[in-house]
Design a binder for these strands. Sequence first.
DNA 1: ATATTACTTAAAGCCGACTTTAAGGCAAGA
DNA 2: TCTTGCCTTAAAGTCGGCTTTAAGTAATAT
Lengths: 134, 134
Amino acid sequence: MNIKEASQITGVPASTIRYYEKEHIIPAVDRNNSGVRDFDDHAIRRISFAKKMRDAGMEISTLKQYINLFDNVENSEDEQLALLVEQKRLMEAKRDKMQDAIDHLAHKIENFDTHMLKIEDELRTMKANKKERL
Amino acid sequence: MNIKEASQITGVPASTIRYYEKEHIIPAVDRNNSGVRDFDDHAIRRISFAKKMRDAGMEISTLKQYINLFDNVENSEDEQLALLVEQKRLMEAKRDKMQDAIDHLAHKIENFDTHMLKIEDELRTMKANKKERL
DNA sequence: ATATTACTTAAAGCCGACTTTAAGGCAAGA
DNA sequence: TCTTGCCTTAAAGTCGGCTTTAAGTAATAT
């Protein structure tokens, strides 16, 4: 599979895939005889994982660290687990901040509705008065 | 209250507060006779709101749009409500993506534990065999 | 044969969101 | 008076994360 298809499947631009490979965020992709990248299932999964983590706000540098720990080093199970747990914790904290903001907006929306109802009420009263005057 | 205190209270750097004012993300702050900013409660709340939204990943441009809609324009209740609802929806979508990533990490952590237990098991077996051989 | 279309690289460019720098002003304390 | 410590501005600089550009190669269609 060439880079265009890989891009379509993963939703990651070809230029970004190349950039991720250069930065070792995904492993070096296989090449055919003429030096063209040939993506297999594993490569696709790695791109998708990178995308998922980036979408969740994980920084490139952290992702790199993570990848390096899991790809290159042996005998660092403790470190690996620690990183997983730490990243999960950070993401949960971020998610909670988002929830805060969502709650804030929800509150504004509720108040807004109440406000609107009050205005509608006033409009009804005005119309009633108008009818009376007719 | 001067900018240093405002910064300490809100957790937003003084340079960022100045930047936010310049970009109209917070309203123009009162000045004393010598041109020094004097922050009141309202100003502080506006900075905190900006921070909350930024922390939740809202872009500066969106925040600007939002602020403009609520501060400057009259008679755009529909637009205001629409923006609130739309921003809430976007944030919820983002939060859900984060949850996806968190679940992914949680899954890895679980598998990791299982994997570790398996390894420990192997170690126990090896030690047992070693004892037998003694 | 040549045009099209996809690929390749390295390097430069871009954008958002600040942050830092340079140059200076004001007010209080030693 | 002068040093300390705060403040001010405009402009330049930084950083992360891509994206675009320029120049070239390779396979396929006409």
